[in-house]
Computed example of a mutant assay.
Amino acid sequence: MTSATPGSASPGKRNPAAWGGWLATNYPGVLIAAVGGICSEAISQHYGAPPMLIALLIGLAIHFTYDLEKIRPGINWSARNVLRYGVALLGLKIALADIISIGLSPLLLVIGAMAVTMVTGALGARALGLSREFGALSGGSVSVCGASAAAAVSSVLPQDKESERSLAVVIAVVTLMATIAMIFYPLLVTALNLTPQDMGVILGGTIHDVAQVVAAGNAISPEVGTLATFVKLVRVAMLLPIVMGVFFWLGRGQQQHASGQKVSYIPGFLVAFFVFAALNSAAVVPKELTLWGTTASHYFLVIAITAIGVKTDLKSVLEVGWRPFVLIVIETLVMLAVVLGGVLLMH
């Protein structure tokens, strides 16, 4: 049996001496990611800016620290493991009763719009000369929950400089589109003189990030805000099948055994996501623990995206050109067209 290299295993699986070695190897990078994440959250709360975008920008600004050998292990660990902890705890946001309460027709409409958006991402990426991975990453981000979904999808894609650059681009552009949607979509649904339920379906079914959905819905009324949030939870609940679909579609679900046979496996953090969602839906998780878990999920994701920013060279991000931007705009408009069109047709 070969011994693990420093920082390659989770600290929870090590004896005290090995855990101390892991800490000595990783703590400088983890500390930088954590401090950057805390700063981004403070800036977000003070100015109202999207925390994921601020985290990415802070990470990009301190990319020079990644040139230090003692920093890299902790940054790499944060970008990979802390990200997966955050995605797993997202399951605590899911409550089956809330999802069922919106009704079958809106539920099917939103799921259908997500499927169309994912297909648009795949076909659009091919038409624009972008990679399949970028199509899956952008499609998953737009159809599910913005930056958090982008991070989740990225975690099951091949980990290289290209994937890190793609993730940085998707987070930046999707956050921009979510902010634009948060401002203009409430004006659109109000001008159409729709019912509060229809407004909630459209806002929750089309705006990218959860925070922007809450803000856009409550800008109209508390009732619309609540309905929009419930619809948004449908999309968050679909994170598991979408990430698993990407996982198997792009061939990452196959592991070569010594016997030469390939077997499928499911990442542990996706299993944890499902377990947390099931427990929360069964109402066996205390509300205080659910609140703690969802808060921890948010901070884990902010820290992980800070680390991803640190790993990413801003120059390489700026070199991607206009095609990724166009693809994400198209996906956003397709999502809006399907949900809005479906709501209007139902009347």
Rank of each mutant, 00 (worst) to 15 (best):
L108M: 05
W249D: 03
L167Y: 06
T175C: 07
P222K: 12
D313A: 13
S155W: 01
G135F: 01
W292G: 09
A258K: 13
A283Q: 08
V82S: 05
K70T: 12
L108I: 03
K311E: 03
H46L: 11
V302M: 04
R72D: 06
T65P: 00
T117V: 05
V343Q: 04
G342Q: 12
G321P: 14
V284H: 04
L336Q: 11
D98K: 00
H347A: 09
L188P: 06
V156N: 05
A178I: 14
I242Q: 03
L336M: 11
A42H: 04
A34Q: 05
K287R: 15
D160S: 09
F274D: 12
D209G: 03
M1N: 14
S78L: 08
A172L: 05
P51G: 03
L107E: 00
L289V: 13
G121K: 04
S155R: 00
T295C: 00
L203N: 13
A178H: 09
L176R: 01
I32N: 07
G140V: 10
G268K: 07
L104A: 11
I220N: 10
I71L: 10
F300Y: 10
L333C: 14
K287G: 13
L56Y: 01
T120F: 02
T179A: 09
M182H: 02
I58F: 13
E319L: 11
G7R: 05
S259D: 10
A150Q: 00
K262R: 10
L57E: 12
I242M: 08
G225K: 04
Y66A: 12
G253E: 06
S40A: 08
P222L: 12
S155I: 13
R84S: 03
P241G: 06
K93Q: 03
L336E: 05
T290I: 09
A113E: 03
P73T: 10
V326F: 05
I328L: 08
D160R: 12
V30P: 15
T120Y: 01
W77Q: 13
V310F: 00
S101A: 01
A17K: 15
Y299L: 10
S101T: 08
I330G: 04
S44A: 05
S105H: 07
D67F: 10
A191E: 02
A152C: 06
L130F: 01
M177G: 09
